[in-house]
Nucleic acid binder design. Structure first.
Lengths: 348, 348
DNA sequence: ACACAGCTTGCAACCGATTGCAGACTCAAT
DNA sequence: ATTGAGTCTGCAATCGGTTGCAAGCTGTGT
C-alpha cells in the first residue's frame, strides 16, 4: 500500500540507492538529482520503512521506558518528558509498566531490550548486581537511581532535604519526624541521609518513624507514630504519603500547620489541591525524562562512552556538561502546610 | 550479537525454514525435529527479530496509543490497561501524548500509523470528519468517543448521570447544578444530555452553569456561578473539576455537604483523598484500555470486520459480545461530599 | 590527445525472517 | 514392483531498505 523506495526511484528516474543516499547522505548526491528525488518523495508521501532500515542498520529508532506505575503522577511526569524529547529526536518509545512488581521488572526489561536500541529504567527496584547484569547486554540509563558504572539521572536528595529542614528550623521547629518510603529504595536512603546531615548541622532533632508504603495509605498508617514522636514537623517520603498524613492528622483532630507542619516531596498536582495546600520539595520530573533520553541517545551514538569513560574524553551534549550522569535539584515550594512551631507541644 | 534463525538451524541440523515453521506452525513439523529445534532455541536464547518478521508479514506487532495528557490520572489508567493487555498478546505499545494540543493530534497519529499495525485514540479532540479520514488509512479504535463507522469503547454516560441524579434526589435535592467540560467534548455533551433526561424524569431542576476547563482550576472558576444558581447539589464534569469546586466552596465558607452536595465523575485516586472524600461516578479506566486492545486486535486479525459489518456476522471475542463496540458502565461511589439537602437554601 | 582525480550514480549483496513450491521419503494399496 | 497419497523438509524468492564497490562522466594538467 505505502510507497516504497523503489516507487520513488522510478518516479524520480534514478535507482533506489540514489534515493536512499539523497535522504540520508544528501551531500553525496547532485543537487539537481536531490531535488527530483525530494519532489518524488513528497508527491508519493514516501516514508522509509523503519523495520527494513532497522534490519540493515541494526538500529530500530525505538527506546524502551520501564516505570513501576504509570498511575503514579511522578512516573507519569517522567514519562511525559521522555516521550516529548524522544519525539523531537524522531525516536519512538515503548512504555512498560511493571505494576510495582519487582519480580516482573527484570523479565520485562529483557523482553523489551530485544526490540529497542536502549532502555530507560525509572526507579528500578532491582539490586545493583541485577542492574549490572542488565546493563551488560543492553544500553541502559537509570532515572532516580544511581549504580556504579551505569549512566543515569538522579535528584540531589541531600540538597532538597536541607532546604526543607532549613525552612522548618527557621519556623522554630526543633524536632522533626521523618516518614521513610520502602527500606530498600535508593531515594529513601538518600533522603534519610540528607535529613540526618541537615538536622545535625542546623541543630534540630530528627525522629525517623520507620518505613512505609509510598502511598496515601502509607501516610495514614504513619500518622499516629508521627504524633507519638512529639515532633512539631514531619517530612514525608513523598507527597502521596504527606497527603495521607494530612488526612489522618485531620481525623485525629490535629491542625496543620497549627499543631504540626507537614512537608512532602515531588510536588505532584495533587499537592496544591490538598487542604491545606502542601509545602513540598518540587522535583523536576519531565526534565529527568528529557535528560535520560539525551543520555541514552549519546551512548547509542558513541558506544564507547560510559559513565566511567565519560570523564576522560567528555565531549557530550549541552545539558550533560561532559558527564554521563545528570543531577537535578529540587526546589522547596512553600504552601500552607507549614507554619511556625507551636509554643507548646501538641502532646501537652 | 544476538542469535539468528540460521544459528538455530545450524545447531539443530535443519534448514532455517524448518526452524521458522517449528516455531510458528508446529503442527507442520515432525515431533522429533521440533524437539531438536526447541532445544537449540533455548540453548541459544533465540528470539525472532521482529523487524525482519515484520518486513515480510507486514505486521509489526506494535500498536500505538494516543492520549491527550499522560499526567491526567484518567488517561494514565487507560494507558495502564492498554499496556497490560497488549503485553498479554505479546504486542508492544508506542505511547504518544499530544499535550492537550488538538492541532498536534492528527499529525501525531499519522506519524505513528506508519510504524504500527493500528492505533488506539483516547478522547480525541478531532472532528468526526478528521477521524473518518484517519480511519481511512489506518486501523483505529476510539476510547471515550463514538464516531460513525469507527469501532470504539465508550462509557454509558447517561446511565452514570442517572445514578448520580437518583442519589441526589433521594437525598432531597431538587435543584442540581451542572458544570460542563469543554463544549465540543463528546463526553460533556453526553453527560449533559443524561443529566437533563434524568432530571426531567425524576422531577428535579437542572441548572447548567456553562463550560469550563476539565481541571482543578476550571472547578475553582465555576464555583461562584454554582453558588449563584441556588442549587443544593452540583454534578461536575469530572473529579478534577469537583475538587476545584470543593476548594473554592471551602474558601467561600460553604460547607460540603452541609450547604451543597458535590458529585464528580471518574473516580481518580485523588477523589478519595479529597476533603470531604468525593462522591463520584467511577469509570472503569483500565477496562476501557483492555477492551480497546481486544477490539483493535480483532480488527487486525479480520480486516473485514468493522463497526458496520460486525452486526452481520458478529463472531468476536468474549468481552465484546459480538460487536465492535464496547460500552462500559459507571458505578456511583458514595463518599462524604453528598448528604441530605439543607432545609433552607444556602442563599437565604 | 592522454591520464588521472573527483564527483555521481548504479549494481548487487545483504540484514533476518517467512512462505510457495517442489522434492524426498514413508507407507499402503493394487 | 508400481502407483499414489500423505508427511516432512529444503530451496529460493521476497519484504524494503542500506552500502561497498566499480563504472561513467566531467574537467584539469601536461
Amino acid at each position: 500500500m505505502a510507497a516504497t523506495i523503489r516507487d520513488v526511484a522510478r518516479l524520480a528516474g534514478v535507482s533506489p540507492s540514489t534515493v536512499s543516499r539523497a535522504l540520508s547522505l544528501p551531500g553525496m548526491v547532485n543537487a539537481a538529482t536531490r531535488a527530483r528525488v525530494a519532489a518524488a518523495v513528497d508527491q508519493l508521501g514516501y516514508e522509509p520503512n523503519r523495520a527494513a532500515r532497522g534490519l540493515i542498520t541494526g538500529r530500530t529508532g525505538t527506546i524502551g521506558l520501564v516505570v513501576p506505575d504509570l498511575a503514579n503522577p511522578f512516573f507519569a511526569g517522567v514519562t511525559k518528558g521522555v516521550q516529548a524529547r524522544a519525539r523531537r529526536h524522531d525516536v519512538s518509545v515503548f512504555v512498560a509498566d511493571t505494576d510495582e512488581d519487582p519480580a516482573a521488572e527484570a523479565g520485562l526489561v529483557r523482553a523489551l531490550s530485544k526490540q529497542v536500541d536502549g532502555v530507560i529504567l525509572c526507579s528500578p527496584r532491582a539490586s545493583n548486581d541485577e542492574l549490572a547484569a542488565i546493563a551488560q547486554d543492553t544500553t541502559v540509563v537509570l532515572v532516580n537511581r544511581a549504580a556504579e558504572g551505569i549512566p543515569g539521572v538522579t535528584y540531589d536528595n541531600e540538597g532538597g532535604m536541607r532546604q526543607a529542614v532549613a525552612h522548618l528550623v527557621a519556623l522554630g521547629h526543633q524536632r522533626i519526624a521523618w516518614v521513610g518510603g520502602p527500606a530498600k529504595s535508593w531515594s529513601t536512603q538518600h533522603r534519610g541521609l540528607g535529613l540526618r546531615n541537615a538536622a545535625e548541622e542546623l541543630r534540630a532533632k530528627l525522629a525517623p518513624v520507620g518505613n512505609f508504603a509510598p502511598t496515601y495509605e502509607g501516610g495514614m498508617a504513619a500518622a499516629d507514630q508521627v504524633i507519638a514522636t512529639g515532633a512539631t514537623a514531619v517530612v514525608a517520603y513523598n507527597d502521596l504519603v504527606a497527603i495521607g498524613l494530612l488526612a489522618r492528622l485531620h481525623a485525629r483532630g490535629l491542625s496543620v500547620p497549627g499543631d504540626l507542619s507537614v512537608v512532602g516531596v515531588d510536588d505532584i498536582a495533587m499537592a496544591s489541591m490538598a487542604r491545606p495546600a502542601l509545602t513540598t520539595v518540587r522535583l523536576p520530573k519531565q526534565e529527568a525524562g528529557r535528560i535520560a533520553v539525551e543520555l541514552l541517545l549519546t551512548m547509542l551514538d558513541d558506544p564507547e562512552s560510559t559513565a566511567a569513560s565519560a570523564g576522560a574524553d567528555g565531549e557530550l551534549r549541552g545539558e550533560l556538561h561532559g558527564e554521563l550522569h545528570g543531577e537535578l535539584h529540587g526546589e522547596l515550594i512553600v504552601r500552607d502546610s507549614t507554619g511556625p512551631a507551636p509554643r507548646t507541644q501538641p502532646s501537652d
